[in-house]
């Protein structure tokens, strides 16, 4: 019985995860290493990688700042509507990214107030970088907040108060006490944000218009290549993204282990 269960898990694992990955890898190199290299170094592919990296970086910075702020407010402040905010933060997990993208289209469309304002200011939001960043922000926002809020609650305020009694001002308290206590949580939340931002497809597809060499991210490039029957290109770019994701996952596992020991130490005191 025990072996049967283990066998089923292995089979499931092989069929669902390992099989497809190996098959994709073999397909990427089906026309040789040169073809693989040509495909990932084509201007369209390179542009896709660059755009994905840009969006990811900007989203990461914004999420670290506003995610930390939100977590601090949620963990420390008591205010009217706190549970409402806390509940709404999870919304992006529940809403399909396509709907998230569609909401942005409605919000910034040419006939809306926001659309008119940005239109007159000559700022292109839709089918350009701003909307793609907004869409990615929407789907990644919960990661940071969900990671840091419980950590801040466990940390409590005593260490911060101790720092104040020792003469530390509010910035010093934050930089020398709060932030170090959150460090592994930050790394964990950041890696999740990066992984999700790199892989985002639906929301970005809707708001970007998928314009070649302009708004085509790496995932959109995979999709486009596949639609255009260029399987080698699709496989090659996909494999590259997969390698990045795998690297991120490794960082994530390390961060998770460290964050857990931090929490365990906090709990032990």
């Amino acid at each position: 019985m025990r072996w049967l269960l283990i066998g089923i898990v292995w089979l499931y694992f092989l069929v669902l995860l390992v099989g497809p990955i190996l098959y994709m890898a073999s397909q990427s190199f089906s026309e040789g290493l040169t073809a693989f290299w040509t495909e990932i170094s084509r201007p369209e592919a390179l542009h896709g990688f660059t755009l994905t990296a840009e969006i990811t970086l900007i989203v990461l910075v914004l999420n670290v700042i506003f995610g930390t702020m939100t977590a601090m407010v949620l963990a420390r402040q008591k205010f009217w509507g706190r549970s409402l905010v806390s509940g709404v933060i999870d919304l992006p997990f529940a809403v399909s990214p396509v709907i998230a993208g569609f909401m942005l289209i409605l919000l910034f469309g040419p006939d809306t107030v926001l659309g008119t304002i940005f239109g007159q200011a000559q700022i292109k939001v839709l089918f350009a970088l701003p909307a793609m960043i907004l869409a990615t922000l929407f789907v990644t926002f919960p990661f940071m907040v969900r990671e840091l809020t419980p950590l801040l609650q466990t940390l409590g305020t005593e260490e911060e108060e101790a720092a104040r009694t020792l003469g530390a001002g509010e910035w010093q308290v934050f930089l020398k006490v709060t932030l170090p206590a959150l460090r592994w949580g930050l790394v964990y939340g950041a890696t999740l944000t990066v992984a999700r931002a790199i892989g985002e497809f639906g929301a970005v597809l809707v708001v970007s218009g998928n314009i070649l060499l302009l708004t085509q991210t790496a995932t959109l490039h995979i999709y486009q290549s596949y639609v255009d029957f260029n399987y080698v290109a699709a496989n090659a770019v996909a494999l590259t993204l997969l390698a990045v994701s795998f690297a991120i996952l490794t960082v994530l596992e390390i961060a998770k282990a460290r964050a857990e020991t931090t929490v365990a130490e906090a709990g032990a005191q």
Partner: peptide, 20 residues
Amino acid sequence: TVQERNIGFVFQHYALFKHL
């Protein structure tokens, strides 16, 4: 402010900085 009062405070649960 608490910073200006020059007091030493010992907390019930120590409140040591765990990362230091």
